[in-house]
């Protein structure tokens, strides 16, 4: 794992995001600050409408802030253009979505290869990396199945493998268990904890306290502001 970077992996300072809606300005994020170090497992918990998704979009470099600074792995993100953001997403962040977001027409391994294709990894190396990632999540046997031939838990594991394949410093999980039943949800969560144990930094976004409590740090988000919940830290 890559762990030499001296500073924090994520440093958010005074970050705000405003939306214009029908002439009214909505402050989805209001001057928040957050620091995440290498190897951390942070859960961000909040009800819907709290600014959770906006924060995830910011951390995931899917959107840029209106104000404030976001340094990811020492690089300032807030002033980047679309292409630079795409590059950052490709190399620094692995996404795990609630709805899995696999491409239905591609097999498991092709899905996992996708971020590597956009990174320009040559075919042979790419296949090896994708197989590696699938084996890590225990799906070495089902590489050539399409998402529709896999169970929900398996699909989410393919998604985790896709996030892991490019070996990014941060895994960003948005309600990873939201679309799964309790049992498979638990399995997936265990896998995420396992991955964290291997040194991957994880930011998990959820509305479920019991899931958030599996993390090392829990941060509450309410009305666009963040509150660190030290008492729950594992």
């Amino acid at each position: 794992m890559k762990s030499e970077s001296p500073g924090p992996l994520i440093r958010i300072e005074g970050l705000s995001k405003w939306y214009q809606m029908g002439g009214e300005t909505i402050k989805a994020l209001d001057c928040v600050s957050l620091t995440v170090y290498q190897g951390d497992f942070v859960a961000i918990i909040g009800p819907s409408g709290s600014g959770k998704s906006t924060l995830m979009n910011m951390i995931g470099c899917l959107d840029v802030p209106t104000e404030g600074s976001y340094r990811l792995d020492g690089v300032e993100i807030s002033a980047m253009n679309d292409n630079q953001l795409a590059d950052i997403r490709n190399t620094k962040i692995g996404f795990i979505f609630q709805g899995f977001n696999l491409l239905p027409k591609l097999t498991a391994i092709e899905n996992v290869e996708l971020p590597l294709i956009y990174r320009g990894v040559p075919t042979r190396k790419r296949k090896a990396m994708a197989m590696d990632a699938l084996e890590k999540v225990g799906l070495g046997e089902r590489m050539h199945h399409r998402p529709s031939e896999l169970s929900g838990g398996q699909q989410q594991r393919v998604a985790i493998a896709r996030a892991l394949a490019a070996n990014p410093p941060i895994l960003l999980a948005d309600e990873p268990t939201g679309a799964l039943d309790t049992k498979t949800g638990k399995e997936v969560l265990e896998m995420i904890q396992h991955i964290n144990g291997q040194g991957h930094t994880i930011v998990l976004i959820t509305h479920d306290l019991s899931i958030a409590q599996q993390a090392k740090r829990v941060i509450r988000i309410q009305d666009g502001k963040l509150y660190e919940d030290w008492s729950d830290a594992g």
Partner: peptide, 8 residues
């Protein structure tokens, strides 16, 4: 999805 995982 493609854009999220890094397609330019």
């Amino acid at each position: 999805i493609r854009k999220a995982i890094g397609a330019k």
